[in-house]
Write a protein that binds this DNA or RNA. Structure first.
Lengths: 290, 290
DNA sequence: GATTAGACTCAGTTTTACTGGGCCTAGAAT
DNA sequence: ATTCTAGGCCCAGTAAAACTGAGTCTAATC
């Protein structure tokens, strides 16, 4: 008696994932960021799930969404399910290619800290295949397929590789024109768009220093700003851990050598469980020197 | 320093589901059936997952696929994840509309057993919204969005609503032509395509009876065969629990009243946990009489 | 009063998933 | 030995999603 056709089906898995992310992160736009889509896409997915269920999961408010009773009730279940699913995915990855490791790092860190160290590490650990992906926000190791992250952040968040200290730097032939802090007003002061506070932090920490109005070009890539500083375009607020090699090579010098700690640090976090290949990479990174 | 674009992403959730189903059920075609798609679709999904992982999960053999080491290792994880996910989905359904219940039943059971009883049940439980979907294979309550199933199967599998007993039936004016078993060879013997053994089972159980060669039209829907029998088209092997109303109304009579048990039963299974609305429906079904 | 953050909607597009056919292989049935 | 069958593979075409991008809306903040 073959009669199939219209069987009711479960909701789309992607819709469930969108719900879980939105609920966990507390908003469609945050979820959209984690899922690498637009917030409109998340809104549509969640709506689809709500339509399927015949009931809302969020309360819409002008300043965002908040879980309603139903949503609050199912979130823990969904979270556990997707945690489990992510663990499965990572297990597949880890077992299928145990020597393939993937690092997520801030673009500046990837280019200025990691990149100079990688050749030696690759030589020391030739059996490992190490990939690097640069991104602004630290990924969620529970969900994204990375084994290790290197970001500037709270020292509490993981293993501290270096503390973050800043000091002005410039090309040697520019240094002659910077004798005191006030001179900075006469020179282009390079800055990075996502670290726009650097100058303010440094000026404020130099207790008693007058705070001249500074101006200069803004870069969207810190490595680009460093390059421009090397080229003599002006004075850059340098993050010590990122400009080590340029200082050492003399391409950059510091007119005011007092470094100021920002309270942040270059922090390394690793996926658990830490299997041997990953442990070896962590050790190599921790011990690496320029 | 906004630099996003090419982030490695996890595998497609649908691919994971296809893998899980194929691994759990031991074949792409079985998985395809559960997922209501073609086996080619499953094959493609699994291949996509294997490509993502960079390693196979199944060993391809001409008579099917079997899990390899990697697949065997991740199956338990995937199973737990999807169990959890299914539980989440069912929770959403149950909490969003607790009075909406969905029954899955064999088409014959839906039409001939359930349908006559439903009006009274709906009257007795007016707050419940009861949907019925007919299907050949009992759904997997752990995965599909049904609350209750009614199928002919092993009595051990759930709550027995009625044992399955068969006996020949026909319209009253046909009965005069059937005095002994041998007469059956002279009449069309109706049968259902998915219960083609019925006649053989009955003939064999009538110990000592000669087994005449029977012939007659085959129907793909048991309800259709019943209707034809009522119309006087021949003799049908009747399942007692499904033709009760026609016997009672005298539309059908049995020339050989010895019913033969088939060893199967009309079995009811319910989703756990059994919440009050579902419990009420089960009670109503168990107690229902024509 | 302007700006901002967050979400909604909708048309258009891209991407993905699925179908339906033909093909292949090995075991089972004849 | 031949069919037959079950199970999977492959491929082109298609159907269905998911996603984008731009425009709106609202309340909160500056």
């Amino acid at each position: 008696m073959p009669v199939h056709p219209p069987r009711p089906t479960g909701p789309a898995l992607n819709a469930l994932r969108a719900f879980e992310a939105a609920a966990r992160l507390g908003g469609f736009s945050k979820a959209a960021e984690e899922l690498c889509v637009t917030s409109g896409a998340v809104a549509q997915q969640v709506k689809g799930l709500e339509d399927w269920a015949g009931a809302d999961l969020f309360e819409r408010q002008p300043q965002g969404v908040v879980l309603n009773d139903l949503g609050r009730q199912v979130l823990p279940l969904a979270e556990r399910a997707f945690d489990q699913l992510a663990a499965t995915v990572q297990e597949i990855r880890a077992v299928a290619s145990p020597n393939r490791l993937h690092i997520a790092a801030l673009p500046a860190v990837a280019q200025l800290w990691l990149s100079p160290r990688l050749p030696a590490i690759r030589r020391a650990l030739p059996d490992l295949v190490i990939s690097v992906t640069a991104m602004e926000q630290a990924p969620n190791l529970g969900r994204d397929p990375f084994d290790l992250t290197l970001f500037l952040g709270d020292p509490e968040d993981g293993q501290v590789v270096a503390t973050d200290e800043i000091l002005p730097v410039c090309a040697p032939d520019v240094a002659g024109r910077v004798m005191q802090v006030a001179d900075l007003a006469q020179l282009p002061c390079l800055s990075d768009s996502s670290w726009s506070q650097d100058w303010a932090v440094w000026l404020q920490a130099r207790a008693g220093a007058e705070t001249p109005q500074l101006r200069g070009p803004v870069f969207s890539l810190y490595a680009l700003a460093v390059q421009e500083a090397v080229n003599g375009a002006g004075v850059l607020m340098g993050h010590q851990c990122l400009i080590e090699q340029d200082l050492k090579a003399g391409r950059l010098v510091s007119p005011f050598p007092q470094a100021v700690p920002t309270g942040k640090a270059l922090v390394l976090t690793a996926r658990k469980p830490v299997r041997p290949p990953l442990a070896r990479l962590i050790a190599a990174l921790s011990e690496s020197r320029l």
